[in-house]
């Protein structure tokens, strides 16, 4: 962790976790996990009925499909609004709260360069986001597997795909890993919005708006050809590709490379913008 050797980043990390808002956010996420798991269990049972009703005429089923893997998968599907929303609230607050309280001024008067300070904010935002994704993966996994055990995962992705337990586990793990790219994307966007809009509430509104539009555009599957492929909104769906029966590794890799490119560009714009603006 050479990153954490950087004193500025350590201070940012320390500040983040000394603020009650961060713990409220994490607490809210954990509570949501419980609610989502209940919902997943409920949804899972009815999904199985709906999907497998016709198959029951031709087949006997042996084994439990309403298991931990299915629940984690449903949680993965349902977390694409609230998780980025909470992340965006916390991450943008890291900067806007300092702007509003004036502590950003106090920091800037310590003689640290603007560039170094905003870089540390972006770094901590990314680290925090990855940590939260790991936390969500762990809590949903631990709760699901403890209560519902493991078994085959069935998903609908063009066809009814059945994955054996170990395969399912690996796919879910990779989906979380790919998902963390999307979450980091939303986090750096919210940091950029904080740099631009400066006020906490204004930034939250714009961030929520951005998130809603992204979700709508994703459902519309806008565009054709290369645009559709490279449009960041659609790239945020990359994690779904781990549930195609045959994983298209190169497509996923390219998507993640492009997403990482977007993250870098947004971060660079955020740093540039922060450096060029006065501290009020």
């Amino acid at each position: 962790m050479s990153l954490m050797n950087n004193a500025v980043i350590r201070v940012e990390w320390y500040k983040l976790f000394r603020q009650s808002r961060t713990w409220y956010a994490l607490g809210a996420l954990l509570l949501l996990q419980v609610v989502l798991l209940l919902n997943a269990w409920y949804q899972g049972a009815s999904l199985l009925d709906i999907f497998l009703e016709n198959l029951k005429q031709s087949f006997h089923f042996q084994g439990e499909l309403l298991n931990g893997h299915l629940l984690v998968y449903i949680v993965l599907n349902t977390m694409w609004f609230h998780l980025p929303l909470i992340l965006m609230i916390v991450v943008s607050g890291m900067l806007t709260s300092e702007m509003e309280a004036g502590t950003l001024r106090t920091v800037m008067m310590t003689g640290i360069s603007k560039g170094r300070y905003i870089r540390s904010k972006f770094t901590v935002a990314i680290l925090f986001t990855v940590l939260v994704v790991i936390l969500v993966a762990l809590t949903s996994g631990i709760l699901s597997y403890l209560i519902f055990g493991v078994g085959d995962l069935f998903v609908f992705h063009g066809a009814l795909n059945f994955f054996e337990s170990n395969d399912a586990f690996l796919r879910l793990f990779l989906a979380f890993a790919a998902g963390s790219f999307s979450m980091v994307f939303f986090s750096v966007v919210s940091m950029l919005l904080a740099v631009i809009f400066r006020e906490t509430v204004k930034t939250w509104i714009v961030a929520a708006f951005f998130l809603i539009v992204c979700n709508l555009l994703l459902q519309m599957q806008l565009g054709e050809g290369w645009f559709r492929r490279l449009f960041f909104v659609n790239l945020n769906d990359t994690w779904q590709m781990f549930f195609e029966y045959t994983i298209n590794w190169s497509a996923i890799l390219w998507n993640l490379i492009f997403l990482a490119g977007y993250i870098l560009i947004i971060t660079a714009v955020g740093i540039w913008w922060f450096k060029k603006t006065d501290i009020e």
């Binding site: 949804q43 999907f51 016709n54 031709s58 998903v155 609908f156 459902q219 779904q240």
Partner: peptide
């Protein structure tokens, strides 16, 4: 085999 019914909202965009 009868084709499965797909509930549009779930498990697929």
């Amino acid at each position: 085999v009868e084709k499965v019914k797909i509930p549009i909202r779930y498990l697929a965009r």
